[in-house]
């Protein structure tokens, strides 16, 4: 396989995840913070490709939920139906899991769900940048949920929130052990929450890129290419279809876990 790479197949599956400034060319080797070389580093305020796609995500969501519902029609058109069905789905999910008290946090949950769904699908456009493939993005989302839920739990329940870790239905001797396990699993939540999303999105995109690189085989070796190129095109189609599913499923999973964590904060009893 290494010989194929040398003959000219170019595999750059991770290039799509590089954050680049929009209006500035970065000279090579100009960002080495340890040597105080920082002029090539990306500044926190400057617009990058990440900024562009975050903005497009926001615009797409606003287009659906604000312009799509502009008519306020009793009998909705298609766009308004989609907005209403999304609203209904997230609303029902939150209500089913957290009960009526959870509905106070509906805008937050809805924001999370819409952001992830739209980021995932916009990231599937060719040449786009997947914001949800970045651990910085999903990490912030997961930490927001984690900190928010933890603070909310203590504010709402005070010390009773710690009852989440004290399994009162278990035998007394087992409780400290279970408490330790519960505590560890509680703190692992933001890690799994963020890496699950970023990992799923990144893996699919990288695999598509690898298949795409194999697609060029026909240009290098017609004999091998006649077999490999159609297979890799089929592979791209298959993985792309899978990614379409993963995009919605991961958004759903992220949101439903947020609801579950929120339920723990509202009703910490086991």
């Amino acid at each position: 396989m290494a010989t194929e790479a040398e003959t000219g197949l170019a595999f750059h599956p991770m290039d799509q995840f590089v954050v680049k400034p929009l209006f500035r060319h970065i000279e090579p080797g100009t960002c080495v913070p340890s040597q105080n070389i920082t002029e090539g580093c990306i500044r926190w305020y400057e617009p990058t490709n990440a900024t562009l796609w975050l903005g497009l995500t926001a615009l797409a969501i606003i287009a659906l939920f604000v312009f799509g519902t502009r008519g306020r029609a009793i009998i909705p058109n298609r766009v308004q139906s989609i907005a209403e069905m999304t609203y209904g789905m997230v609303y029902k999910m939150l209500e089913d899991i957290c009960g009526k008290e959870g509905l106070k946090y509906f805008p937050f949950v809805m924001t999370l769900f819409c952001f992830i769904v739209f980021s995932n699908y916009l990231g599937l456009l060719p040449k786009s940048f997947s914001t949800t493939s970045q651990i910085a993005v999903t990490g912030v989302l997961a930490l927001m949920v984690f900190l928010g839920v933890t603070i909310l739990g203590f504010v709402k329940n005070g010390a009773h929130f710690l009852g989440l870790f004290w399994v009162s239905s278990a035998p007394l001797a087992l409780r400290p052990v279970l408490a330790l396990i519960e505590l560890i699993s509680y703190f692992v939540r933001p890690v799994s929450h963020s890496i699950r999303l970023a990992g799923n999105v990144m893996a699919g995109h990288a695999v598509i890129k690898v298949f795409a690189a194999f697609g060029a085989m026909l240009l290098i070796s017609p004999i091998i290419g006649i077999v490999v190129t159609p297979l890799s095109v089929l592979g791209i189609v298959g993985v792309y279809g899978l990614e379409m599913l993963v995009a919605i499923i991961q958004a759903y999973v992220f949101t439903i876990l947020t609801c579950v964590y929120l339920k723990d904060a509202l009703h910490p009893s086991h």
Binding site: W44, E46, T51, A58, I61, F65, T69, Y87, F106, V140
Partner: peptide
């Protein structure tokens, strides 16, 4: 080195989205 930039713009995006959804879109729907 890209985290500061990504997190800043993410928070901006989320703030805008939260405001638009909670003040305009969700009450309307």
């Amino acid at each position: 080195t890209t985290f500061g930039n990504q997190i800043f713009w993410l928070l901006v995006t989320l703030a805008v989205l939260y405001w638009v959804l909670s003040k305009v879109a969700l009450p309307r729907i």
